[in-house]
Amino acid sequence: MMDRLDVRKTYKLYIGGAFPRSESGRSYPVFGADRQLLARPARASRKDLRDAVRAAREAWKGWTMQTAFNRGQVLYRVAELLQGRRAQFVQELRDAGAPEPEREVDASIDRWVWYAGWSDKVHHVLGTVNPVAGPYFNFTFPESMGVVGIVAPETPALLGLVSRLAPAVVTGNSLVVVASESRPLPAITLAEVLATSDVPPGVINVLTGFTRELTPWLASHMDVNAIDLTGVPEDQLDEVEAMTAGNVKRTVRARVDDWFDDAVAQSPYAVTALMEMKTVWHPMGA
């Protein structure tokens, strides 16, 4: 009697809430720790990236206008679903050769919860009422920047991604994420979690493919407001940073040695770094 054959998964992109293959028809092989072929995920093209930016821009309009409380709940819900998929993430990370898969998944879920709670609190910490010398009520508060590109760190594939994605999305930005090139599968599984959560389609878009190829397109795209360059290889940084000048993108780049260390790997300043500060003046008079 024959054993039952596994049904294998096709790993695709996540754009606008759907899972398309690359329009280019390209894929690339991803190998595990013992060099076995794990999958052939999509190798995203420039067109895929542009589609993702368009989806993100459209989704941003609604997401940024949600109440902070609502976004906090929606993202907390994602953590609930991550918990439910814990075993799958552990297996994928183990297959990919992650040294501490259980610990990484647990830390990722906890980090997600931590950031979800900031949705309605960064305003207290870094918003201000300004005592101007005149009869005006004057205040400054943070709000979302718009579309943010995220080049995720190569490793840890899940914890690194979550650590950069969660602070960016919690305040109403929408994202185009370039996943770890060598370990992209947890990012696609995360996309599946997002697709079944209450995060609106297009708020988070996930591309797999060649980081060196995708990053310049993201950095030079005129409708991307900011970019997280954490996963950009050191030798490509000059070129990519220069490209961000085209539309005066904000750039951030985390330098984290130990992604498990909460003291350095998570921070409300990572949230506000991808927010704009808006100052409002209004006269006071009877």
Partner: peptide, 14 residues
């Protein structure tokens, strides 16, 4: 954003 005023500046105001 200046509401019912314009071009106001103050060192305490970002």
């Amino acid at each position: 954003i200046w509401a019912n005023t314009f071009n106001r500046f103050d060192p305490s105001s970002p």
